[in-house]
Design a protein around this nucleic acid. Sequence first.
DNA 1: CCGATACCGGACAAGACAGGTCCGCTTTCA
DNA 2: TGAAAGCGGACCTGTCTTGTCCGGTATCGG
Lengths: 193, 193
Amino acid sequence: MLRLSKLTDYAVVVLARLEAEGGVQTAPCLALATGIAEPTVAKVLKALGHAGLVEGLRGARGGYRLERPLRAIPLSEVICAIDGPIALTACVDGASGCCEAETVCPVRGRWDPVNEAIRAALSAISLAELAAPRPAAGRRKPPPAQAGPDFPPAQAGPEFPPAQAGLNAPPAQAGLNAPPAPPARLPAHSPAE
Amino acid sequence: MLRLSKLTDYAVVVLARLEAEGGVQTAPCLALATGIAEPTVAKVLKALGHAGLVEGLRGARGGYRLERPLRAIPLSEVICAIDGPIALTACVDGASGCCEAETVCPVRGRWDPVNEAIRAALSAISLAELAAPRPAAGRRKPPPAQAGPDFPPAQAGPEFPPAQAGLNAPPAQAGLNAPPAPPARLPAHSPAE
DNA sequence: CCGATACCGGACAAGACAGGTCCGCTTTCA
DNA sequence: TGAAAGCGGACCTGTCTTGTCCGGTATCGG
C-alpha cells in the first residue's frame, strides 16, 4: 500500500480550498466546503499551522490564512507536517541498539537512498499541481495511459525527471481517500479496494 | 511516516539472504539465518512466490530459490508483492461512486503523477543496492562500483538517477525495522554472511 | 509402497496504530 | 462584557497489521 494517512489527504483538500476561497476562512466554513468533519478539519489546520503552512488568526473574525501560495508548497512539506518525517522504515538512524537483528541485517543503513528518492519525488510536486484548476475533466485518469502529459516540477524540486515510470505497474489509482462525507453521514464509504 | 510494512522489510532481508546463500534454501533455514520467526518467513516467501520473485520447490529437499538475481529485482516489485500496488491514496481508480466528496474534492484524479513518481523512484533502486555486500559504510549515494560490474536498471526500471536528492530533508533514517529478536533461541545467530 | 519433509492455502486472534471526537482555556472583536 | 474562534491536550473507538496455526498436497528417500 505504502499509503499516507487520511489526515494528509484532508490537508491537501483543505489547503486547496483555502486558496480557492482566498483570504481568511474559518475551520467550520472549510469543513462545510470540503465535507470533512469540523473537528478533523480543525485538527489538520492546527498541524498545518505548526508547520507554518497556514496562519491561525484567533478571536472573533478569526480563521486561517495561507502563508504561501499552493504553488510554493511542495507536497513533501504537507506530508511532513501531518505525518512526520518521510521515511519508509521505522528504524531510526541513531538508534543502533534498538534493532536486535543488526548483526544479521544485510540492509542496515541502506534505506537512505530510497528515502531520499521518495523525498525528492514528493518535493518535486507542488500542491498547485494536485489541486489543479481544471476540475478533473475526464473524471478518471487522463487519456495518456501512464506518465502525466506534463507537469513542471515545483520550485522546491531537485533535479529529477518528473515521474516517468515505465515499469509494469499495477493499475493506476488516484483520488481522495474519501472524506467522511458531509454532515448527514452518507452511506457509502470507500472501502478502498 | 509514509512507512511500508514490516513484511516488506523482512522480504528484503530474506531475499538478500537467499542470494547470499545461493541455491535452494528452506524456510526454516532462512528463518534461522535472519532471526525472523519461521511462520513469518514462510508467509513472506509465499507472497514472493506468488509474485514470481522466488520459486518454491515442494517435497522433501524442497525450499525456495531466487528466480532472478537481486540486481534484476527493483524494490518496487517487492513492495508490490508484499504490500500490494503502490498508491498513496486509497481511492481506487474505478470506484467513482464510492467517494462522496467527489464533487467537492479538488484533487480528484490528481494523485496519479505522485504515485508515478513514487513508483519510478522505487523502481530505480534494485535490491542489490539495498543488500550491498559491504555492511554499511558509505551511508550516502552508493558509488557506482558495487557487487557486480554494473547493474542494468533492473528489468523494469526506467532511466533515472539512483536516489540523489538534494533537499533539506529531516534526519536520515535507515535500517531494518527490527525483527522480533529471537526470543529464547538463537541469540543473534550466524553472522551477516 | 510408505513415511518424512517441506511447501501451499487459508483463516484466526492479539496488538498497535491512526482516526476522529470532545473538553476547557485563551484570545480577539463588536 | 459577551460571543466567536482558535489552541492545546486527552480520550475512545475502529481498523489494520502482525504473527501464528491448521489441514492439505507434492516430492524424495528407504
